[in-house]
Computed example of a mutant assay.
Amino acid sequence: MCEEVQEPSRQVPKAIIGTVIFNTIAGLVFLIPIVFVLHDTEALASLASGQPVPAIIRSAIGNEVGTFLLLLNLAVLALLCGIGCTTAVSRAIWAFARDGGIPYSTQWRKVNKALDVPLNAMMLGMVVEILLGLIYFGSSTAFNAFSGVGVITLTVSYACPIAVSVIGRRQQVENGDFNLGKLGVFCNIVALVPLFCMPSAVPATAETVNYAPVVFVAFIMIATAWYFIWGREKYIGPPTADVVGIEPHD
């Protein structure tokens, strides 16, 4: 999505840092009151819904209307988050299709002229999201593994360019439009600290063990195999000049 931003080399880093700062403050403002009104943790852990926040707010407020109004904000945030994720997925699919990285790329790289968005790519992403959501009805453990692997893949996707930058002694960053100096070096090192995938409960059982690393390794194996089967010959990589032949379609 950086391609849709003016001056991305300067504005995107500002947006990332601003988001981290804002979310840290907003998270503390939300969590600190929750901690103060938290009481029976064992009862919350045994809730059938697995969602303790509504019960905590209901206990603190004391009435249904107040609880609903406070939870409404969370519902709106979840909706906005879903829209953001769908938008990001559609742009990722479009970018891979533009570069020939997925089958039937000519269909997925089309841009709807009326809406000015990659509608086909968005629909493909939504279908995959819905199919993954259906896993929950079969096995919540499997669903948690697929949802949890998203965090791992995002972290790895962030760590890869950071590692390349650190190995190259941050030469490209130092000559770029945005540089945090020594603070940037510290942030890079912290970002590369290994993250451990822990189970949701100890001792771990077949239902509570964290299967996200297993799914992650499976995805890596599939992606590697797909590269040798398809990508090595079809995938041309991001364009270094103006893209030719990709015009808006109805």
Rank of each mutant, 00 (worst) to 15 (best):
M1R: 12
C2R: 11
E3A: 12
E3S: 13
E4F: 08
V5A: 04
P8C: 10
P8Q: 07
P8V: 10
S9Y: 10
Q11R: 15
I16W: 08
I16S: 10
I16M: 14
I17M: 12
G18K: 00
G18W: 09
I21D: 01
I21W: 10
F22D: 06
F22K: 13
F22C: 13
T24G: 15
T24R: 00
I25P: 05
I25S: 01
A26W: 02
L28D: 04
L28F: 15
F30S: 12
F30V: 12
I32Y: 07
I32L: 15
I32D: 13
I32N: 02
I32V: 14
I32M: 08
P33D: 01
P33N: 11
P33V: 09
P33G: 08
I34D: 00
I34V: 11
V35I: 14
V35Y: 10
F36D: 06
F36H: 08
V37R: 08
V37I: 14
L38C: 10
L38H: 03
H39K: 15
H39S: 15
H39Q: 14
D40V: 00
D40I: 09
D40P: 04
D40C: 00
D40G: 04
D40Y: 04
T41E: 14
T41W: 13
E42S: 15
E42T: 12
A43L: 11
L44Q: 07
L44M: 06
L44V: 12
L44W: 03
L44F: 03
L44P: 01
L44G: 02
L44C: 06
L44T: 01
A45V: 04
A45R: 13
A45S: 14
A45W: 10
S46M: 05
S46P: 04
S46L: 13
L47E: 04
L47N: 07
A48F: 03
S49E: 11
S49P: 04
G50Y: 03
G50P: 09
P52Y: 00
P52F: 06
V53G: 05
V53F: 05
V53C: 03
V53I: 15
P54S: 00
P54R: 01
A55E: 07
I56E: 00
I56D: 02
I57K: 00
R58F: 02
R58A: 13
R58D: 09
A60S: 02
I61P: 07
I61H: 01
I61L: 05
